[in-house]
């Protein structure tokens, strides 16, 4: 338990602190959303209908690089929040841009992975229940990351225009929470999809 004798700027207005709490609650809902996808994926994992299995598809090198990109981006995003609390727009924007680039790298790799599966391995959404589950679970995460990138760009523009105000600070803080959260989801994808896919 930590106490602060200072209220950070993003919490300084009632609206700001309400919205941050609202976002946490939304993340609670997102946990459930992904858990439903995980349960579908895991139930269908063995339903390969004669098509490729997880062991046939997953490449350790590829998914490790994806994982590291996201883990590091979560770190850089966290540094951004520190700069936010120092009211340092430049530092904040710089870290957000780094985060964004790492995120783009991740999305690029994931797209590449999907394209390889579809074109080289003939493993598509329609091939089997297992692959439907795989593409939709991993794709939903990827769609979240892409959405996060667009959102982060909007926040960066607003920060550049208006500086660190209670409103922009709140937005920067919230996009940070979102980004870390997507990292958590990825860790579970890494574990339950990729690593488990090598075992089962």
């Amino acid at each position: 338990m930590e106490t602060t004798n200072h209220t950070p700027i993003e919490y300084s207005t009632e609206e700001g602190s309400n919205k941050i709490l609202g976002f946490w609650v939304f993340l609670g809902a997102e946990i459930v959303l992904f858990s439903a996808l995980f349960s579908v994926y895991l139930v269908l994992h063995s339903h390969t209908a004669g098509g490729p299995t997880s062991k046939d598809l997953f490449e350790v090198k590829e998914f490790m690089i994806e994982t590291f990109l996201l883990l590091i981006s979560s770190f850089t995003c966290g540094l951004g929040t520190i700069e936010l609390r120092r009211h340092n727009v430049k530092g904040l924007v710089a870290w957000l841009v780094v985060t964004l680039l790492l995120g783009l790298g991740f999305i690029g790799m994931e797209l590449n992975e999907f394209i390889t599966y579809v074109t080289v391995e003939h493993a598509t959404l329609q091939t089997s229940a297992f692959l439907s589950g795989f593409f939709v679970l991993v794709g939903t995460h990827g769609a979240h990351v892409s959405f996060g990138i667009v959102w982060m760009i909007c926040v960066i523009i607003q920060l550049l225009r208006r500086g660190v105000t209670p409103v922009t600070a709140r937005k920067a803080f919230i996009i940070g929470l979102y980004w870390h959260f997507l990292d958590v989801v990825w860790i579970f994808i890494f574990t339950a999809v990729y690593l488990t896919g090598l075992v089962l």
């Binding site: 809902a29 997102e30 459930v32 959303l33 439903a36 996808l37 579908v40 139930v43 269908l44 339903h47 390969t48 209908a49 098509g51 959404l125 329609q126 091939t127 089997s128 229940a129 297992f130 439907s132 589950g133 593409f135 939709v136």
Partner: peptide
């Protein structure tokens, strides 16, 4: 959120030919 997923998956089945809830290709 669970309803969201259920509806989304069935929509993907119907619109894009996935196999979450179909009888063929291992759907459940």
């Amino acid at each position: 959120p669970v309803l969201t997923i259920a509806l989304a998956l069935m929509s993907i089945d119907r619109l894009f030919g996935a196999h979450f809830f179909t009888i063929e290709a291992g759907g459940s």
